[in-house]
């Protein structure tokens, strides 16, 4: 029988779907009887969902003002050897 501590330890893997069906079944049986663990898992999912939202929000890094110009400069710099001569195409 799983204890609450075990459920908390498996929570991250459970959310990912990384557990065996036997482990999943054990957790689901526990959750039916335990509202604390149900709440804990819900909150863990909500935390993960917020991180995903954060990734889509654009606030973790800004988009450069002129991405195209940046790309062209890097491309050209890479094709110029340190002595200033042009690299040959392969």
């Amino acid at each position: 029988m799983l204890r609450c501590r075990d459920v908390a330890r498996l929570a991250s893997d459970y959310i990912n779907g990384d557990l065996s069906w036997r482990q999943r079944l054990a957790i689901r049986a526990h959750l039916l009887m335990c509202r604390h663990c149900s709440r804990y898992l819900l909150q863990m999912r909500q935390a993960v969902a917020l991180v995903r939202r954060l990734g889509r929000s654009g606030r973790t890094s800004r988009r450069p003002a002129d991405a195209e110009e940046d790309a062209r400069s890097i491309f050209r710099a890479a094709r110029t050897a340190p002595d200033g001569s042009r690299r040959q195409d392969r």
Binding site: M44, L50, V51
Partner: peptide
């Protein structure tokens, strides 16, 4: 690492 990180995030939100 994933488990510990997520656990702390949940705790911080809580």
């Amino acid at each position: 690492l994933l488990h510990r990180g997520r656990t702390k995030l949940r705790a911080a939100l809580a």
